[in-house]
Structures are given as C-alpha cells and as structure tokens.
Computed example of a mutant assay.
Amino acid sequence: MSKLFEEIDSQDSPLGEISLRRRRIPVFGDRDIYEVKLGDEFLMSSMFVEAEEALSTLGLAAVQGDQLKVVVGGLGLGYTAVAALEDERVSELLVVDALDTVIGWHQDERVPLGKILNADARNRYVLGSFFDLATDPDTGFDPTVGGRKFDAILLDIDHSPTEFLNAANAGFYTTENLALMAQQLTPGGVFAMWSQNLPEARFEALLKTVFSSVESHVVAFYNPFQNCESTNSVYVCVKGEA
C-alpha cells in the first residue's frame, strides 16, 4: 500500500519553489492523488482534470481536417496533452513549458502520464516561455523550424485571463499579442484556453477583436472536498479563413 503522503520532488524555479507530491485520502478509495504546488499555492491536482481534458476535446472538436499539428501551452500533470493525443487526427504535438523541472517529471516518469507521453512518437516537449514564443511568430513554437503554423494552440497556464501565475503574463492578453499568436495558426485554426472562473464578458470581447468566432464553454465537475459541483471554463476561438 502507498504512503498516505510523499513529497516526490521539490526544486527552485524562476517562479519560486515548485514541488510534486503524492497523497492518499482513504475516504476517496484506493487511488494516488498527485499535486503540484508553487510555494504555498496549489497549482493542480489529479483529483480535478475534467476541464483540462475538455480544453483538448472542445478545442480540437472545432478544428477541421486531419494530420493536425497542435501546441499545448503548459504541461502540468499532462492531462491536456494526453487528451490531445487521444484524437487520432493529431499528427504532431508540441508541449511548451517554461520549467525544466516539470518537463523532467514527465521524462523521468515520476508522474503517471509521463509514460504515455514518452511512448507516443507524436509528442515533443519544448522548454521555453509560451508567452515569449507566442508573440514571436518569426521564431514560433518549434525550436527546430522557425515560423511554423499550427492547427490548434491550447493554453492552460494562468488561473484566468485576469489572474496570472506570473504578473509578467498579463501583457499577453491584448489584441496586439493575441494577434501575433494568431499568426501562428493556419486559416481556420483554433486557439482554446482554460480558466478556473466562469466566462468573462470583457475577455470574450477582447478575443473577438482577433478571432472570427469565439465560444465559451462551462465545464462542470464534482468536487468531493466540498461535496458540490464546481465549474471551470474553456474559451474556443476560430481564426478566419482569409
């Protein structure tokens, strides 16, 4: 039987100390729960993955065609990336993360989904700032080929478009920088983004200054800690064909 609590790893990062923990809560049954903390703040838990998976399923559902080339911004515990690879149309996946510690957890298979990602030849990890790469279309997301275009960009880094993991990320959420990112999408390509909050009308209006179509989806899931339903959101935006 696994320990009730174990800190698997803890490392300094540019954002502060980041740690990976595994715990068991007997009332929730025979399962390991993986958690990531940044300092004293909980970033993610394998208890709540429905919205992270929905980011991929809803985003890719809006993309037409086959042989899709996809970028995931923010590796986390890997749920968005694995859900993307479950779409058989995806031929290539680049997962961008700014923290080599998080990429290392997956490469070393210290988290459960690392084994799945490592075994899939379509997947590639990219160490770098999503926001820097998103706003530099001449370089772009692929460190081996500059200026590539992708069919979908799926983003799960900040808590919401107004609550940031790093204050420096706030500058991304402008018409100018979203338009720079959109240059890296194919015509009809999709940008989708996760948020911990309900859809925000001001952000929807901002997205509409760049994208031809913007839809917001509320993803509901059961929260056993509060014994009630919780919600997150996924914004799905389609670039015009012209």
Rank of each mutant, 00 (worst) to 15 (best):
M1P: 12
L4I: 07
I8F: 15
S13D: 02
S13P: 01
R21L: 05
G29C: 07
E35F: 06
V36N: 10
F42S: 15
S45R: 05
E50Y: 15
A51T: 07
E52Q: 11
A54F: 15
L58H: 12
L60H: 11
D66E: 15
V70W: 07
G74F: 12
L77H: 04
L77A: 14
T80C: 08
V90H: 05
L94I: 00
A98F: 14
D100S: 06
E109G: 14
G114H: 15
I116A: 14
L117C: 02
A119C: 06
D120V: 08
A121F: 09
R122F: 08
S129I: 13
T135F: 02
T139K: 11
P143V: 03
P143L: 07
T144G: 09
V145Q: 13
R148W: 06
D151R: 05
L154S: 02
D158N: 13
A167M: 08
Y173Q: 05
Y173V: 05
Q184P: 04
T186L: 04
A192N: 09
Q196G: 05
N197K: 09
K208R: 15
K208I: 01
S212F: 12
V218Q: 13
F221N: 06
F225Q: 10
F225H: 06
N232I: 06
S233N: 15
V234F: 02
Y235K: 11
V236F: 00
V236Q: 01
E241A: 11
